[in-house]
Design a protein around this nucleic acid. Structure first.
Lengths: 232, 232
DNA sequence: CCGGTTCTGTGCGCTCGGTCACAAGCGTGC
DNA sequence: GCACGCTTGTGACCGAGCGCACAGAACCGG
């Protein structure tokens, strides 16, 4: 327990709040693994049940429709974790995870993880918070499908903007998100995104520069969505 | 602690696994409330954060789109609980809950609930399992919106069938679910459901009797959905 | 700088499915 | 039974948005 040098597991969000002694004890139940860029970490429908904690690198979670179309994804980086769902309910994995860059992860078996939850209520609560967030995000998604395509795209843009604010009413997305990307997340097609962007650009709400997308007026974008939504 | 007479809180699913002494201790943090049929228990966007445990009666959870259209719902009965999300993350309520029948519930403040989670890891794990189930159900929903209307309706039918199986390949839904009901859950219109039912009835897959709906061949229904899905 | 590849912008036809309209069932209460 | 309301079945219309096609722009690697 060296005070100046924090334990490596201290970077894991779920373990925030544990002291070094507790982390050392937890570490006994983990194994470290390295993945090369492009390698698959877990595969959809696998029935492995380990939980993973990312020490370094960047991974990508994807879900494919049965037709093979990519439906949604998010990126994971150091400090984040994944695989809790299968550990908790024993069901097969709900998504693919592949390494985007070389990455180091630490993993724990389902039963060791569940035991850790019992021993350390703070971890359990951290997982609860994580799942709660997920539930709310998913619900939002479900609601959104009641909306028309343009509204959904606007919402997705607003979500992207939220994480890249630049002042209070503007955001810069760099690198520019690919249209096909956005489209697939809200379950529509590239062309729809392209057309909407043109419209928004004409109104000065967004601006496309080299390799970046600037949302000049977040308020106006939200208003645009609201107005589309209400009248039809 | 009378051995023959179980504690009233023992009926609550989340408290499965606690002994009578622990239940008595928990009870000190609860208040009991009675609701009359039709009364609102929690309202969407409220910022109350209590957790509710149903002792008796039937409640209904609904979510409305901003346009006021009912999007989805589920029913809750004795033993189930609700309100955990707001207690865990402190955000406003994610849905409306109204009493369908007269009902008795027990409630706990958010902070008492969180404290209980810390003291009783089994409760925390029960909540984790519940949320995990929810996440999986919601993900399934999100995926489904990539499908065409008919496929979505078939899937909804299959879900209904799952809870009302009659042998291995048939199910009886009684009372018959209303078409408008099913339609709103998969985000479409009464007419679409009506038309699909006619088609399925012509193929002998389902059968409409007085006040009930019989799914004669669940396999065939699943196959029908799969085939629609793959060719277009 | 050139040739290829991937991404973007836009026009157009066609299909799915949302909407309207109306008739027929069914249940309930009087 | 009859009248009323709620639910269901079905045809016809029509608009949103998907899919296709193709041209231009941006982004490589060499």
């Amino acid at each position: 327990m060296e005070p100046g040098r924090p334990h490596p597991l201290a970077t894991v969000d779920l373990f925030r709040g544990l002291d070094t002694a507790q982390l050392q004890e937890l570490e006994r139940y983990t194994r470290t693994r390295a993945f090369k860029a492009g390698q698959t970490v877990v595969e959809y429908q696998d029935d492995s049940h380990d939980v993973f904690f990312i020490l370094s690198g960047k991974l990508k979670v994807t879900i494919f429709s049965e037709a093979g179309r990519e439906i949604a994804f998010r990126e994971l980086t150091a400090g984040q974790s994944f695989g809790e769902l299968s550990a908790i309910d024993g069901q097969p994995r709900s998504a693919n995870v592949i390494a985007l860059t070389d990455a180091t992860v630490v993993l724990m078996t389902a039963s060791d993880f569940m035991a850790a939850l019992k021993r350390h209520p703070d971890i359990a609560i951290a997982v609860l918070k994580k799942l709660t967030l997920l539930v709310r995000a998913l619900s939002e998604r479900v609601h959104e499908f009641a909306e028309k395509v343009e509204v959904r795209i606007c919402h997705e843009l607003l979500r992207l903007a939220r994480d890249a604010m630049l002042g209070t009413n503007a955001a810069r997305l760099r690198p520019a998100p690919k249209h096909a990307e956005i489209a697939s997340r809200v379950n529509t097609h590239r062309e729809a995104v392209s057309r909407l962007f043109s419209k928004l650009a004409r109104q000065g709400i967004v601006q496309r520069g080299q390799g970046e997308l600037v949302i000049r007026d977040v308020q106006a974008l939200a208003a645009y969505a609201r107005q589309l939504h209400s009248h039809g």
